[in-house]
Simulated assay, not measured.
Amino acid sequence: MATPEQLTISPPHPPTERAIAAFEQVEAQIKHEITKSRHDWDKHEPKMWSHASQTSDHNLVNFTIKDDLVTIRSAETSYGPMLFGKIRIRAIKLDSAGELVAGEPQVDSHGHITVETKHGKIDDDQYGFIFVRIHDPPGEGTENVKFHSLFTDEGKDEEGHNNGFYRAIQTNSKPLEFFNE
């Protein structure tokens, strides 16, 4: 398993067509793992997914890679590229104090979740995000892409003990960094 010290991770950038195709290959599994993680954490530490406490599973995973994968980073390993992605969760927004809040998303007349825009562009600073790590083994296509993990932030104090901070949904300002979870 590669460590961040062994890798050169690309700077954050918008997803390429290849990255979109890779993440789309495992989109159903990403959605499954989000709801599984939420239910598992709710059993022993509900703070982890507390920002989604008023949001249904359906709305929590009501995203598409094509529209909601907003940032990626990648690193080459001897066993193929490792990709990190930041996926917009339209059902989780920031309130006026800049805190993530749970709720149900606004839906248009066709049942599609709407997004807030600023000057005609989606205002990502208004939404929550989930960070995902996948692996794209060597080869031509994306059919071998493997889901690896979701980032769940368990705050640690200086001695490495949990400090009571838990967060699975991040703000856009949280940097997309290497993670192994």
Rank of each mutant, 00 (worst) to 15 (best):
G98Y: 06
K36P: 00
D157W: 09
K47I: 05
F84I: 05
T35Q: 07
N59L: 05
F178G: 10
G80L: 01
V61T: 15
N172L: 03
V145S: 02
I89H: 02
P46E: 14
L60F: 11
L94W: 01
I134M: 10
S109M: 11
H112S: 08
S50Q: 14
G111T: 12
R73V: 03
I130L: 12
Q54G: 15
T114F: 12
R90E: 02
I87H: 04
G103N: 08
F131Y: 14
G164M: 13
F63V: 07
Y127C: 06
P137Q: 12
L60R: 10
I65V: 14
S53L: 07
L94R: 07
S109K: 15
E159L: 10
F63S: 06
S96E: 14
S96I: 14
D42L: 01
D157C: 08
D123Q: 11
N180R: 14
I113C: 12
T64I: 08
D157G: 09
T142V: 15
N59D: 15
E181Y: 10
D67R: 12
Y79C: 00
E143H: 11
E159V: 05
G103A: 09
T64R: 08
F151L: 12
D40F: 09
G141F: 02
F131I: 02
I87E: 04
F179G: 03
